[in-house]
């Protein structure tokens, strides 16, 4: 019964989109790697801005999203909730 009902072939994205995903993966891995060195706020702002940019935001808006996300998470999780985030050379 299982063999009789093969699903439709998935629709794989073309090469440009695959490269896009690969780039995002690399950015995430780099983020993980540099998080303890750069500190949470900088690393997160950069990574979030990159993702936002690749999702179709303008460069200025992505920078705003990145900084907003990073500072927002820092304030809520670190200052309000007291979660310890990675500290960079500047102490945040």
């Amino acid at each position: 019964m299982i063999a009789l009902k093969p699903d439709a072939e998935p629709h794989w994205p073309g090469l440009p989109r695959l490269a896009e995903l690969l780039a995002a993966t690399v950015v995430m891995l780099l983020y993980a790697h540099f998080l303890p060195e750069l500190g949470f706020v900088f690393a997160t702002a950069i990574a979030a801005a990159y993702l936002s940019w690749r999702l179709g935001n303008t460069i200025l808006m992505s920078l705003a999203t990145g900084i907003g996300t990073s500072v927002g998470i820092y304030v809520i999780f670190h200052l309000v909730l007291g979660l310890s985030l990675a500290r960079g050379p500047l102490g945040f």
């Binding site: 995430m28 979030a48 999203t65 998470i73």
Partner: peptide, 15 residues
Amino acid sequence: PPKVLMPIVAMVSFV
């Protein structure tokens, strides 16, 4: 929009 939401989702997951 997701272009704002998804980076937040990703970053909250990492954090």
